[in-house]
């Protein structure tokens, strides 16, 4: 019964007919499965979430699931990568003008706006991997490394700028993520953007010192 149904509960459409291209259907089903795995894994955890639950959340059959992904892990990985790309693009677009400290603030604001719109993304990318352990936990490291790269992009090689060691930069981004996760776990995920000044200041202190960091965190430029 499920086999003849597409994501929309409509019969499967051959390509190029009905004004609904196959690409559209595919994208749509993929998007729904992405949304489905994010919601399911964020709620239940990686090991606990089943393909059936993901399909139910996506409104897609198991057969459709397996036509896109060979496993839950592959689906998780692709969703993870899409979120990462989305965040990186939004952060790059938001913080391209002005000086670097200002860019950091704009990039953090862009990231927090995305997370605030769907706090499940925080659980999915920044909580679930550590709880899942093993190979899945590696993705947490990747996510934090990308975050660090997005924030430090364009940092001037200025002699007056302090250059924290790699270890301190990792601790810094770990601390930043800790604040975000705590806010979400306190049920205040929708208000993540309140953290923009605090996180900007925290992140910039090791690079530009406390006074400059406070100034950059409060400015609106």
């Amino acid at each position: 019964m499920q086999d003849t149904q597409s994501a929309d509960g409509l019969p499967r459409l051959p390509p190029g007919r009905h004004g609904l291209s196959r690409d559209f259907v595919v994208t749509n089903q993929r998007d729904r499965l992405t949304a489905g795995i994010i919601a399911t894994v964020a709620e239940r955890g990686y090991h606990e979430a089943t393909v059936s639950q993901i399909c139910a959340a996506a409104g897609v059959s198991r057969r459709t699931f397996y036509s896109y992904f060979s496993s839950k892990e592959e689906c998780y990985l692709q969703a993870f990568e899409r979120i990462g790309e989305h965040l990186a693009e939004a952060m790059a677009a938001a913080g391209s003008a002005g000086n670097w400290p200002g860019q950091v603030r704009q990039r953090l604001a862009a990231m927090l706006a995305i997370y605030a719109a769907n706090p499940d993304l925080v659980r999915f990318t920044l909580v679930v991997p550590l709880r899942a352990g093993g190979e899945i936990a590696v993705h947490q490291r990747t996510a934090l490394e990308h975050l660090l790269q997005s924030l430090t992009a364009g940092r001037p090689e200025d002699k007056s700028l302090r250059r924290p060691s790699a270890a301190i930069e990792h601790a810094l981004v770990g601390a930043l993520v800790g604040v975000i996760v705590r806010k979400v776990e306190a049920g205040e995920g929708e208000r993540l953007t309140d953290l923009v000044p605090e996180l900007t200041e925290m992140f910039l202190i090791p690079y530009i010192g406390r006074d400059n960091a406070v100034r950059a965190a409060r400015s609106n430029g």
Binding site: G174, A175, G178
Partner: peptide, 23 residues
């Protein structure tokens, strides 16, 4: 100092250690 200073410091260090241990 920010109220959350110690908590963020400890979180950052825990993450760094986590990273080194798993790598």
């Amino acid at each position: 100092l920010p109220d959350s200073l110690e908590e963020t410091t400890v979180n950052g260090i825990a993450w760094l250690l986590h990273r080194r241990l798993t790598m």
